[in-house]
Amino acid sequence: MSFVVPKETFSGKVLAVDFGKDDKKITIGGENTLPFLSFEGECPNKPAIAYEIQDCPPDDWPETVLNVYKDVSSDTVTWAKYCQDELKADAIALRLISTHPDRDDRSAEDTAQTVKDVLAAINVPLIILGSNHIEKDANVLVAAAEASSGNNCIIGKAQEGNYKTIVAAALAHNHKLIAMSELDINLAKQLNILITQMGFDKTKLITDPMCAALGYGLEYTYSVMERIRLAGLAQNDQTMQPPILGDVGMYVWKIKETIAPEADVPDWGSIEERGIAWETVTATSMILAGTNLLIMRHPKAVENVKKTIDELI
């Protein structure tokens, strides 16, 4: 018996989506096979990684990742420039967390200025995220979309409860859009359909099926992503072909494994490496399941995931 490489060809293809401007523009997606199986198909664009920054000091981040940014995080623009110039970020994800009513409840107008200031200071592509407060995001993201008009940003996240105004704003200002649902392939599909029914071009969508940290439901995210990929590729389901987002950092850097000092949990080893490994392994698992765009926090985790990606292509 001689070995014949068992290749599979798929009728569907992941949509290629670009964001950013000029020579810093990034394209994600475009593959017509499962992640990294280039022996049987095309994988033209590797997964991209954006550094997460916030519009206020990250007091709620654990020390391991807080310390990295302690000299720059008091000012959003300084922080953004640090990521771009020192950490060589390919993209930046600005989370407008201060707008959350339970945080500073900052107004949409204030936030718009921050978006403008950050855009003026950087030339890498920008992802603009709300605070994940359904009602507030509807205002904040509309103002942010306007403030960043013409910059080909990714805006998000549009959810079932607020997508209409956010979709309209992304449409008006020519941005890409993240559609987020909660760990359910049918909800992800339904939201994509609702959004495209508003006249939003499906080639400008990015699906966020909701991330989970290693040990905290990673298997659900992993399987939902694999099923979305298979639906888009094998069944050629047009509504399941946008690239996938893995918003890794915010889920990883709040769990016990990234917070508890070694003195409290001696069996878990060094808190520093533990946190970095946690973000790294979570992100690596996500890209194997189909994630095209990662949002991460710790530079060493980013570095190791990049090295892993380089090994994978």
């Binding site: 290693l214 494994e257 069996d267 080893g269 060094s270 490496e273 490994a277 790294t280």
Partner: peptide, 14 residues
């Protein structure tokens, strides 16, 4: 290292 095996055990379990 304990942190490394903890992460790998957890991923395997998932």
């Amino acid at each position: 290292e304990k942190w490394k095996t903890l992460a790998l055990f957890t991923q395997r379990q998932n």
